[in-house]
Amino acid sequence: MAELLQILVSGLSAGAIYALAAVGFTLLWQASQTINFAQGEFVMLPAFFVLAGMTIFGLPLWAAILTALVLSLVVLGAMFKKLIVEPMLPHGTLPLVIATIALGILMKESVKEFYSAQGQPFPPLFPQHVINFFGASISIQDICNLVVAFAAIISLQLFLGRTRTGRAMQATAQDPRVAEILGVDVKKMVMYTFLINGALAAIASILISPVYLAKFSNGETLGMIAFIAAIVGGFNQIKGALLGGLLIGVIDNLAAVYVSAEYRTAIPLILLIVIIMVRPQGILGTPEGRTV
């Protein structure tokens, strides 16, 4: 029982971080039909912005994090949109898929060549204590990660549902043409979506790097998990991506303990295949209309 509780908490904590990446992934898909195959690398990179700020420019941790956040907004948000997505969008999804794959390789190799190929220790943001809760040892770090990730997603949800800009963004995602007719600045709303994705990636990166070291190849698994979470939960729903992220986090941790370590990575994949066969729109998703 204590063991189960322990697995559940660490699974939820990891899952909440996965959910951040998955939410960004679904937002991009909704706003501009961009399937971002570099999403994992988007989560890998900001941690290196922080490390570079601290080691090369000698900034204190908080200033480095702030700089990394701004850099992520500029590089992963605005530049990604302007330089890569915009010129390619009129040609359909396929060239864009290839381009994001290439972008992922570019980011990964650049970090490897210009920073380091070794995993880098990342300064912890929260106390490293472990508390004893009914016999289960639960780390403060996990709890804090869970809280921060949830706070980010809830404030995003509130922004999208309660503010004028947020609603305009939702309208854009549902039907850009109608939104434009109703006076929404569609281009600006799509840009906001890309900025939000950059911010989410930065938060996820800074939360997850103290747990697993910052390494250039982190994006491979993170990207895969973000896809799976987004699809399992529902490709066109933020709630879906959140549920998917949490589910994958918990299942992955359960599989590590109760299934063999060798086939641990297979469990989320099998879940993915089953969901696509049985319910292609995802657990919480609504079916997409056929485009004729």
């Binding site: 396929l94 060239p95 381009a99 290439a102 390789i105 570019l106 190799e109 490897k112 060549e113």
Partner: peptide, 21 residues
């Protein structure tokens, strides 16, 4: 040397942006 994957990825990006076909 080690930069070939970087150059390679850049080339692909450029090809995709200027000639998606």
């Amino acid at each position: 040397d080690g930069y070939y994957l970087i150059i390679y990825a850049l080339l692909v990006l450029v090809v995709m942006i200027f000639s998606p076909h």
